[in-house]
Amino acid sequence: MELQGKRVLITGASRGIGESLARAFAGAGARVALVARGGDSLQSLAAELGGTAYPADLADAAQVAGLIQRIEDDGGPIDVLINNAGIGSTSSFIDAPDDELRRVTELNYLTPVELCRQVIPGMLRRGGGHIVNMSSIAGIMALPGLATYSASKAALSHFTAGLRADVRGWPIGTTLVELGPIPTDLLAESDNYEPTAKSFKRVYRLGLTVDTPRERVARQVVKAVRKGRRHVRLPRRSIPLAMLVEAPRRGAELSLTGVPHQPRR
């Protein structure tokens, strides 16, 4: 997809990976629409990049309802949706706050799925679009203290595979981004629970993962949208693990080659 002049919606855009994604897509000539809870920082970034800002709490289903339509009514069609917003959950599962399971699942899984549901009809009417779901290697590797977070990311990864099957033959691309540790506030939360912190130290020591700068993530996502790539996996040493999990999905996809796919009318 040529990004010049395209409108790219990025959730969780006020800081961290989302901010880097916003800068990278704006630098590629796209018009960015930014969603996050943070009002001031979000507005400042949008103004700097010549984009538009839409403050919203994406863990609130009432604010998510109709969000795509409101954004498109305000600034035009969305050509690329990047579901980046997410929150962590680092603690013993049974000691987590009462509402944490619901909030993490809502923001990390249900909201991205709902935004996909909202954006696809318009993409189909216009004859094209691309969806990027930002997931995590935590959806593959289960570490202590990350049960809720890992489950939400595993669900998002598997949903993206199912979505790809549903839109097969339609002019809509999908990219699943599976990330290891990125130096952000979310990663820093792992130090809050000793079993998680010790697990990360072990994984680093064994060489199973390394930190990846968020700017590199953003560059690779831009490249994936441009080239229509199905996956971005960082760090690269995590690729074999991701491919092991992907193998049954890919096998099912190949086994269904030639099965008629009913286009949306």
Rank of each mutant, 00 (worst) to 15 (best):
A65T: 14
S41P: 07
S20K: 13
G66E: 00
S92P: 00
I71S: 09
N83K: 09
I68K: 12
G50L: 01
L81G: 07
S20P: 04
S89V: 00
I17S: 01
R103I: 12
L67H: 02
R23I: 11
S14I: 02
L67P: 01
D95M: 00
G75F: 01
D73G: 06
G27K: 02
D95E: 13
L42A: 00
N108I: 10
A47P: 03
V119W: 07
A56C: 10
A61D: 15
V119F: 04
L42P: 05
A46P: 11
I78Q: 01
V35A: 06
L101V: 15
D74Y: 04
I71Q: 09
N108H: 08
G38H: 15
G29R: 04
N108E: 00
A28P: 00
D40N: 10
R117W: 12
L101S: 06
D73V: 04
I17E: 11
A28E: 06
I82R: 01
I82E: 00
G86N: 08
G29T: 12
G18I: 01
Q118P: 01
G75T: 08
I68C: 09
V32S: 08
V80A: 03
L45K: 03
A24W: 08
L21Y: 06
D60N: 14
L81P: 02
Q43Y: 02
A61P: 12
P77W: 04
F93C: 11
E106A: 14
G86Y: 07
V32Q: 04
S89G: 04
E72W: 07
G39V: 15
N108A: 13
R70D: 03
G122N: 12
I68P: 05
L34W: 08
G86D: 07
